[in-house]
Nucleic acid binder design. Structure first.
Lengths: 182, 182
DNA sequence: GCAGTGATGTCATTCGCTGACATCACTGTA
DNA sequence: TACAGTGATGTCAGCGAATGACATCACTGC
């Protein structure tokens, strides 16, 4: 990350990273699948956290709220290291390849959440949809949090974003969801 | 695409592609930013279609429904070439790098939709959320459509998925969105 | 004719990434 | 103690994606 900040991701070679770390290029690739993966080393841990929180949510909690328990738990951990999170965010924001990797990690997170929801008895499509909604809320709330010079409370931003999503999504006609199309 | 189907994406070299197309490797890279981009050549056109449909939606249509007009219009075009869509889908599904590219194209689509919504007067966050919801619906409906041996009507699947999302997202308590957190 | 433009070819080079093999520290066991 | 096994690292060679620099050639408008 030092090198990525100093000279940018593209301008940094793996040889330089290995050199600064005091090992060889080959060894770098034994630890990380590729040059981008360095920035996503903690993703697996975070995913376990998300899934655990969904699994542990009370059985009577509806799908989206169970999925939200996952991302809220993740948000709480993320905001513990605001400086790190912001630096990492800026590196990623400056490079398209890194954004691609970030997106596929989020997709994997979404799939994991959906899996956890299914294990709670939520039907397939509903589980996927609820997971996608939770990840969308996560993305937008995180974006708000990390871009604000004053770091607000991330879990709270997430809940606020979900409320907003509900407002935006709610059917304008009177009847609620079922009445959308006859 | 012929070569990607025959031997897989990873096993196909750019030299081979160029060769079959009757030109040189260097020329290939003048037409496509990288090896993956070949499969996403139509994305810009599709994005314009999405945005156009959102812009053309009646002014009194609420945000999510305006965003849905975009993805539904896209769905209608996509389902015109079921064989092509399925083949392309299978190539992408078999390769992680291609999935990354697909995801960033969808993210770009989402940003474009959000932009179109803002131009309709929808506030920032609401626009982003509505766009994310529409893209989530698009993804899941497309997945259903392309995986089903009998191709159903894609726009209809999208509307059904949105209804399901509304059901899943709707607050279980009585009061609707605003009542979620006091 | 002729200058200008855009598409293509040629060549050399960098860099990400991988396979094969060697080295070396460390551990458990005869 | 000696030795076999294991895992992390280094060394070396090589492939393929991607890029910059320069040359060629068809085509257009004057």
């Amino acid at each position: 990350m030092e090198l990525y900040v100093e000279r940018g991701f593209d301008e940094t070679t793996v040889a330089e990273i290995a050199n600064r770390a005091g090992l060889t290029e080959r060894t770098f690739f034994r630890h990380f699948a590729d040059k981008r993966e360095v920035l996503f080393a903690g993703a697996a841990m975070l995913q376990d956290l998300f899934v655990g929180a969904v699994t542990d949510a009370p059985a009577d909690v509806p799908p989206v709220d169970a999925a939200m328990a996952g991302v809220v738990a993740g948000g709480a951990v993320i905001q513990e290291r605001p400086a790190f999170s912001r630096q990492r965010y800026e590196i990623i924001a400056a490079n398209a390849e890194l954004q691609e990797r970030e997106l596929i990690k989020l997709a994997s997170l979404s799939a994991a959440l959906a899996g956890a929801l299914r294990r709670r008895g939520v039907p397939d499509h509903a589980a996927s949809l609820a997971a996608e909604v939770a990840i969308a809320v996560f993305k937008i709330a995180f974006e708000r949090w990390v871009s604000d010079p004053v770091h607000l409370d991330l879990p709270q931003l997430m809940r606020a974003s979900l409320d907003e999503l509900r407002t935006v999504t709610a059917d304008s006609e009177t009847g609620g969801p079922a009445a959308t199309r006859p």
